[in-house]
Amino acid sequence: MTTPLICPSILASDFAKLGEEVRAITEAGADWVHIDVMDGHFVPNITIGPDVVKALRPHSHLPFDVHLMIAPVDPYLEAFRAAGADIMSVHPESGAHLHRTLRQIRTLGAKAGVVLNPATPIEGLEWIMDDLDLILVMSVNPGFGGQSFIDDQLRKIETIRVKLDRVGHPAILQVDGGVNDKNYHKCIAAGATAMVAGTAVFKGGPSMYASNIKTLKGL
């Protein structure tokens, strides 16, 4: 079984100690820092903006994996890139011209990802593959942490993996939502190569982060 990239979502961290939490998961062996940006419009929650990302940037050398759950998304790409985002993932529903958005992300020097909600079809991927570095499959409906994994999304992961392998595409296939030590192996078996985990990493406090990450890696 392939060892996945583990991308702890700071949505599940202690917001009163964000800098400390980012340092702690970095030292614990995380691969990326996953940052959920929500606007209270595209999804029913409000989290953080570019200024917080900028404030966190000095606390870790890891790639900042920024999931933009905002609409419209295009006006904010430059600000998040300037704040320190290394990867920016967007939803097809968050703007009128997905191809243009992905091109803009790459022009800014970041890696570009597309996010598929549970009900978002995969057919549109065929026309944007040349502009993708990452495909994120949501295994919950976005907006809140702590939700239960939607098993139907395993078939979506499998289908996308077949498409990627058929053409030899190197895109990272990421899963986000309800990931824990009970279902991560199913995601990896289905073809995922990166796992976003919130509660599964941050449970138990900083002394447990390294152990939690090792468990998710299957070590």
Rank of each mutant, 00 (worst) to 15 (best):
T2L: 13
T2G: 03
T3A: 12
L5N: 11
L5K: 09
A16W: 11
A16K: 09
K17W: 14
L18H: 01
E21Q: 13
V22N: 01
I25Y: 04
T26S: 12
A30M: 05
A30D: 04
V33N: 03
H34I: 10
M38S: 04
M38N: 02
G40S: 07
H41A: 03
V43W: 01
I46C: 10
D51V: 08
V53H: 03
A55H: 00
R57V: 11
P58E: 07
H61N: 10
L62V: 06
F64H: 04
F64M: 04
V66R: 01
H67D: 11
M69C: 06
I70T: 08
V73E: 00
P75Q: 03
Y76C: 05
L77E: 11
R81M: 05
A82E: 11
G84Q: 15
D86H: 11
M88Q: 14
H91A: 02
H91S: 00
E93I: 14
S94G: 15
S94H: 11
R100S: 15
T101E: 01
R103T: 11
R106L: 02
L108Q: 12
G109P: 14
A110E: 00
A112D: 09
G113D: 09
V114K: 02
V114R: 02
V114S: 02
P121A: 03
G124A: 15
G124E: 15
G124N: 13
W127I: 12
I128P: 06
D131Q: 09
D133W: 08
M138N: 09
M138W: 15
P142A: 08
F144V: 02
G145N: 13
I150S: 07
D151T: 08
L164Q: 03
P170H: 04
A171I: 01
A171Q: 05
V175D: 13
G178W: 07
H185Y: 15
C187D: 10
A189P: 08
G191E: 10
G191T: 12
A192M: 10
T193C: 02
A194W: 01
A194F: 00
G198F: 03
T199I: 07
V201I: 04
V201W: 02
P206S: 15
P206R: 11
M208D: 03
Y209P: 12
A210K: 07
N212V: 08
T215A: 08
L216E: 15
K217C: 04
K217W: 06
